[in-house]
Design a protein around this nucleic acid. Structure first.
Lengths: 253, 253
DNA sequence: TCCGTCTATTTGTCAGACAAGATAGCGCCG
DNA sequence: CGGCGCTATCTTGTCTGACAAATAGACGGA
C-alpha cells in the first residue's frame, strides 16, 4: 500500500527525487502485480475509489495506470475496468518491470530464466565486442575492472564497477538491441551478489573471470571472448543457485 | 503530424478500435522520435501549445507523454520541458517501440542489429524448446508449419503462420524472458517478408528450413535444433540484405 | 568574481463535469 | 417459452480551468 502518499513535507526527501506521484503509484501497483498480489485476470479497483483512497487526483492515478499499460501489465476498458494482463504479455525486459520483479526476493524460476537469457546473449555479445570494440570501449572496461578489484563486491563502488563492466561490454557490441538488455543483465548480477553476500561468507573472487574476458576482447579474439564470457555466466549462475539454496535452507523456509 | 485528431465522426472508424486519443498521440510522437524527426536532446513543444494544436485536452496529451516516458523515449522536467532521451535509453525491445521503428522503412543498421540478436537467441531457444516442448507446443508448431505451406508467404494467413511458428517455438522454451522477445523476432520476420516480396520475385521457399527445426524439436534433439535454427536465421538475414540491396539499387536511391 | 535570491516559465497536480463505450438486465415480439 | 434488441447503468475516457511545485536563468549584493 502507498499509505501516506501526500508528501506535505515529511517523506518528501524519502521519495526518490525523480519519482513524481504517478511514478510512485505505478511502481507500487507494478510491484503488487509482478509479485502476484494482483493476479492476471483480476480487475483493479475503480479509478475514483482508488484515487480517493490514495488521496491523489484521478488524473494522477490515471497517468500511473497508463504507465503500467505502456509496460503491458494491465489493460483498461470502459465498464469492465482495468484488468491485469497475463504474464506472457508483460514487457519483462523493460527496466522498470525488471526492477519491480527483482525489487524483493524474486521468483526463483524467473531468476533462472534471466540467467538462461544471459547465457544466450552475453557470450555472443563478448564475441561481437572483441570484433568491434573501440579504444574508448576498452578503456571503459579496463576502468571498471580496476574498480572491481580495488573495491571488491563488498562495497557499493565495487558492485557498480561490476555492472559497469558488463554494461560497457554490451555497449561495445555496437548493437542497440543488445545494449538495451543491460538492465536485465544488471538485475541478474545484482541478485548474484546479494545471494552470495547473504549466505556464503567466502565468495569466489570473480575478477579473474572478468579479466579473461577483458583480455580476449582487447586481443580481438572472438572465440576466446565467447568462451571466457560463457564461463563467467556459467559460474555466476552456479554461485547464485548454490548461495540461494544455502540461504533458503538456512532460514528453514 | 496528427492533423485532424478530433474524431467527430469521420475517422472514428479509421482509428484502430483500441487506440484511444493518448495512444494515438503517443504513437504519432513515438514514430517521429524513432525516425529521427525529433532528435535526442531536443525539447518537445510545451504541453499547452501542443495540446492546443492537436485540439485535445492537456490531460490527454500528458497521458501520451507519460506513455513515451514509460518506454524511455522522453523525460520531462519542470521548467525545462520534455526532452527526447538518447537512443541508448530507449526501450528498443518494447513491442510498441519496435512497431514504431519498423512501421516505415526502417534504419538498415537497426534491422541488421535485430538479426544479430535473433542469431544469438533463436538457436539456443530452439535447443531449449527441443528439451522442454510439451505436446501442445509441438501441435502449435505443427499447425503453424502447415499454415505456412498451405498459404505461402504471399498471403496474410501464411505470413501470420510464419510469425506463429516462431512465437510457438519461443513459447515452448518455458522461459518468460525469451518469450518476451517474440515481438522483436516478429518485426524482423515481417521485414524479411516485405523485402523479399518487394523485389526478388522468386523467393526461396523457407518452409523446408522451418521443417527441419520442427523435426529436431519434435525429436528432442537439441544440437540439431540449434543447428537448424541457426541456418534458418542465417538464410533469412542473407535473403533480407540481398533483397534490400536489390530493392535500393532498383529505385536508384 | 562569486554566491544567494528572486522571478518567470514549464511541468505537476487537483477538482468537477460530461461523453463514450460496454455489460447486463429488462421487456417486447415471435 | 425463448430469442432478440433496447435501455439503464456503471466504468473508463476526455475536457476545462485553476493552482502548486520545481527549476533555469536573471539579478543584485557581498
Amino acid at each position: 500500500m502507498v499509505a501516506a502518499l501526500k508528501p506535505t513535507r515529511s517523506n518528501a526527501r524519502i521519495r526518490r527525487k525523480l519519482l513524481r506521484i504517478p511514478g510512485m503509484i505505478a511502481r507500487d501497483l507494478g510491484v503488487q502485480i509482478v509479485s502476484g498480489r494482483f493476479k492476471p485476470g483480476e480487475i483493479l479497483h475503480g479509478e475514483i475509489e482508488t484515487s480517493g483512497r490514495l488521496q491523489v487526483s484521478r488524473a494522477a492515478y490515471r497517468e500511473a495506470v497508463r504507465i503500467l499499460a505502456a509496460k503491458g501489465l494491465v489493460k483498461a476498458f470502459p465498464k469492465v475496468g482495468t484488468r491485469v494482463t497475463p504474464q506472457a504479455q508483460w514487457h519483462l525486459l523493460d527496466p522498470d518491470v525488471l526492477g519491480w520483479i527483482f525489487e524483493f526476493d524474486p521468483d526463483e524460476t524467473l531468476l533462472a530464466n534471466l540467467f538462461e537469457l544471459r547465457r544466450m546473449v552475453e557470450p555472443e555479445a563478448a564475441a561481437l565486442a572483441a570484433a568491434r570494440r573501440t579504444p574508448e570501449d576498452l578503456a571503459a572496461m579496463a576502468a571498471a575492472l580496476k574498480g572491481m578489484s580495488r573495491y571488491t563486491l563488498n562495497s557499493k563502488a565495487g558492485r557498480e564497477a561490476d555492472q559497469e563492466f558488463h554494461a560497457a561490454l554490451l555497449r561495445s557490441t555496437g548493437n542497440a538491441f543488445v545494449e538495451s538488455l543491460t538492465a536485465g543483465v544488471g538485475a541478474a548480477i545484482t541478485w548474484t551478489t546479494i545471494y552470495k553476500g547473504m549466505h556464503s561468507p567466502r565468495l569466489r573472487d570473480s575478477v579473474p573471470d572478468h579479466q579473461k574476458v577483458y583480455e580476449a576482447v582487447a586481443a580481438q579474439d572472438q572465440a576466446a571472448a565467447r568462451e571466457a564470457m560463457g564461463n563467467l555466466v556459467e559460474l555466476a549462475l552456479r554461485d547464485t543457485t548454490d548461495a540461494r539454496r544455502m540461504s533458503k535452507r538456512g532460514q528453514s523456509k
